[in-house]
Simulated scan of single mutants.
Amino acid sequence: MPRENYQKRLDGLRRDVVVMGEFVRERYDTAIEAAETGDDDLAREVIEGDHEINDRYLELEDECTELLALQQPVAGDLRLVTASFKISTDLERVGDLATNLAGYGGPDGGFHPAVDFRNLAVDAGDMVADAVAAYEMGDPEACRTVAARDDDLDERCRRASEAVVRDLLEADRARDARNGTAEGKPDRLAAALDDVSRSLLAIRDVERVGDHAVNIAARALYMVENDDELIY
């Protein structure tokens, strides 16, 4: 393959990964809305559309494989191809997490009041978008900034999870003290547990979205500077 065509394929690979990132972010934002409002139509749109993300991932996988097999890239070109493959894998998994989140919305929408779901979810999505932008621009400092933000997200998720569980335990003790009876308790407890379960699952998956953002930033940094400091 002439060098000019080879370079065009590398540039196209990078562009296609960025486009996939934008597409995943759109689906993720729709999932946030579905989860927060309990909108079944929005949830169905995200869940049934997951195959489109998978198709994009498989196309990128094929392109990376072909470039590796036929062109045997070295040095920076090799890091670009391998980083692109790993980043597309993380984006596909963010798409999977979006389908999870879309399905967590309750019948009345929303989550436990101790969970600031929208801010947590949006911040995690912003981290993914910023990591993809760092990959696109080849910006090492932006990669490190994304990774540093993950500590704050993890801490906020931890506090939210603890608040949900603590509130459930305190509410249950208060009901026991007030009522002095178990009458009607199973139904109330089942409803409370459903709320808690959905909230804890949502927090867990938002935290994982942040982890994938760090993975993307780590691969982008390795691509740019041959530096594996963020790769766990």
Rank of each mutant, 00 (worst) to 15 (best):
D55T: 14
A121K: 04
G184F: 06
A191H: 10
G38C: 12
E26N: 09
R175K: 04
V122I: 14
D39W: 07
S84V: 05
D16W: 03
G106P: 04
Y135S: 01
D152H: 07
D187Y: 06
N179Q: 13
S161D: 07
R208D: 05
P140N: 08
G125Y: 05
R219S: 13
L201Y: 10
L70Q: 10
A69D: 09
V81E: 07
R178F: 01
L60C: 07
V209M: 07
R56I: 05
L168K: 07
L168Q: 13
K86T: 03
E136T: 03
G38N: 13
E59I: 11
D172P: 00
S88Y: 04
P186D: 14
A213Q: 04
D40V: 15
L97M: 05
R158T: 13
A133E: 13
F85E: 02
T82I: 13
M127E: 03
Q72R: 12
H212G: 02
E141T: 02
F23P: 00
A182R: 08
A75C: 09
L169T: 14
A218G: 15
R175H: 11
T89E: 06
H51D: 13
E162Q: 15
D150M: 09
D96S: 08
V46I: 12
E207Q: 12
E45L: 15
L58K: 13
V94A: 06
V209G: 02
D77A: 09
L10P: 00
L58R: 14
A213L: 08
D151Y: 08
A163V: 06
D55C: 05
L200T: 06
A35H: 06
G184C: 03
N54D: 15
A133D: 11
A131L: 04
F23N: 04
G138M: 06
I87R: 02
A163G: 05
D40E: 15
G38H: 12
D55K: 14
A114H: 01
L221V: 09
V17T: 11
A34L: 11
R3P: 01
F117Q: 03
A124M: 03
E59K: 12
F117V: 07
Y104C: 04
C64M: 08
R159V: 02
L91D: 01
R158Q: 12
L101Y: 04
E141H: 01
A83H: 00
R188Q: 11
V115W: 08
D187T: 13
A160M: 11
D39V: 08
I231F: 01
E92P: 00
V206I: 15
K185F: 11
E45Y: 10
E63F: 01
D152W: 02
N215Y: 09
G106L: 15
R44N: 02
I87D: 02
L78Y: 08
A83D: 04
A220Y: 12
C143F: 01
G38I: 09
D39R: 08
R14Q: 12
A124V: 03
D29S: 11
D39N: 15
E45A: 13
E136F: 01
K185Q: 09
D29H: 12
E61T: 14
D227N: 11
R198G: 09
D16Y: 01
